[in-house]
């Protein structure tokens, strides 16, 4: 039989129930006429059944509990990290708003003083840049100090 060998290749896969429709059809047709393959398929099915019923090994309770505790700690850390990042983003946004809002106030208060310093042309942009740089340098230094302290705390813990 020409497709007998091809069918034999399908038998273990049939027992594993992973044939596609075309293979199923091919097999069904062949089995109607070939008792040898039908018997073989039974054998494969028994083997497959045996595999499905192998006893399930269980992890030791202490291992499961340790895994649970460790994973919960890791999840908490991860969330904290995410929260910190969120807070940082919020703070940065807040600082920008503060910078932009305080500029007109600063101008208003120091306007006379600045025009006295240099009456010829407007320093608006230059002063704005210096002002912003100072504010942000201060903020950056604070953030770095904070993260250094956090790292030190973490390494102590």
């Amino acid at each position: 039989m020409s497709d007998h060998d091809k069918i034999r290749e399908l038998l273990p896969l049939a027992a594993a129930e992973v044939l596609d429709q075309q293979e199923e059809r091919l097999l069904a047709e062949h089995l109607r006429t070939c008792s040898v393959c039908a018997a073989q398929l039974e054998e494969w099915r028994l083997l497959a059944g045996g595999l499905r019923r192998l006893p399930t090994p269980q992890p030791r309770g202490v291992v499961v509990e340790r895994a649970r505790a460790m994973a919960q700690i890791r999840l908490t850390e991860h969330l904290e990290h995410q929260w910190n990042r969120g807070v940082m983003t919020g703070l940065i946004a807040f600082a920008w708003i503060l910078t932009l809002l305080s500029w007109p106030v600063f101008r208003f208060i120091s306007g006379g003083f600045l025009s006295m310093l240099d009456p010829q042309f407007s320093h608006t942009w230059l002063v704005f840049c210096v002002f912003t740089t100072l504010v942000w340098a201060g903020g950056g230094a604070a953030a770095i100090l904070l993260s250094m302290q956090q790292r030190r705390e973490r390494s102590l813990a």
């Binding site: 340790r66 994973a71 890791r74 999840l75």
Partner: peptide
């Protein structure tokens, strides 16, 4: 070894 990998897998899940 399976126990160790079991724990590592759950750490990965948390991460």
């Amino acid at each position: 070894e399976a126990e160790d990998l079991f724990q590592q897998t759950w750490l990965r899940v948390a991460e």
